[in-house]
Amino acid sequence: MKRHLISAADLTRDDAVLILDTAEEMARVADRPIKKLPALRGRTVVNLFFEDSTRTRISFEAAEKRLSADVINFAAKGSSVSKGESLKDTAQTLEAMGVDAVVIRHGASGAPYRLATSGWIDAAVVNAGDGTHQHPTQSLLDAFTLRRRLVGRDAGLGRDLAGRRVTIVGDILHSRVARSNVDLLHTLGAEVTLVAPPTLLPVGVGNWPCEVSYDLDAALPKSDAVMMLRVQRERMNAAFFPTEREYARRYGLDGDRMAKMPEHAIVMHPGPMVRGMEITAEVADSARCTAVEQVAGGVHTRMAVLYLLLGGNEPAVSHARTEETK
């Protein structure tokens, strides 16, 4: 396998720790007057976004530019894709233009894998979210924030998240963020508990390396971090819960619930937040909520991923297991 990042499950513990350590060094560049590194000078990276995204696309773009790569942005809206072009033809067009890496977001699960393994294209493929499958860089930036807050910025270097308890709450069924986080946090030694209404848990969740619960109040006191997920209405074509109000009462995080968490515990949210639904404004604006920190960490983490995949003549991240995953 060559230089791709398709799934968080492909990363070994050492790979993940290397990415997090590299991200810490990248973070230090953000404090400098010239926030730029020459590592990807002369390399062309295409951001191929078939699905709407604000923070992920901007975050990737900022990361690419800070590493001095040439950036081409491609949004499916208003492009030849809306005229009916297939992924294959789009890929071959990009290949003909000589791109070195493709950052792809696609509504169909498996599209990045197809792109990476089809032979249509020679470039490195980085998955920026595919359907309800994976969003590996999101899980890396979540792990980055977790390690910073729970272990420490300098103390965390070289360390994983062994023994930390992370509770992921909400729409697990449609969430690629949850899937990636379960894979990566398990690799890093953390204990993950998923909390959701039964209708929002996927089939086969019992085989995932995590605990599953329907009771948020019971999970909160034993969590070092609680990750709230957005209810993805755009992917819902059935009634998964009776009313939004009932969902918010049972699975939303408000001030009273936050008070049940341990003193040191943090509240995470991958964004975009729907205030009043899964999280109240009181919690979202509190010092314990790391949503904004996660965005900052996203740029550093993506810089680390791009540098480690593209910086040398071969990637520093091993991919021993990619072949077996789907």
Binding site: L18, E25, G311, N313, A316
Partner: peptide
Amino acid sequence: MYRDDLRLRPARALARTDI
């Protein structure tokens, strides 16, 4: 990241810059 042989070898782990 400033090495002239960056592209000739696998990507390397970064060391600390501390100004």
